[in-house]
Amino acid sequence: MEKPDRGMVRLSAEECKGCGLCVEACPPKVLRLADGLNRSGYHPVCYLNRGCTGCGICFYACPEPGAIVVLRVAA
């Protein structure tokens, strides 16, 4: 069985303005901008659903206060 990821992100597609700073910042490169548009007309960020390390870097790169929530495996 595959080892579970250390981290996970919850992304708010409606809060996202599609700036792409988190995509650029993410060390394991597990974020990308979606093909579709959100209500504001931006391509919002989405998670590739695997590979997150829970480092939290995307959280600090993101200018929106609540667009990204980062979780980590409980110790």
């Binding site: 579970p4 829970g54 939290g56 929530v69 980062v70 409980a74």
Partner: peptide, 10 residues
Amino acid sequence: MPEYTVIHEK
């Protein structure tokens, strides 16, 4: 499924 806890949020 492991337990995840929030480490960064609004």
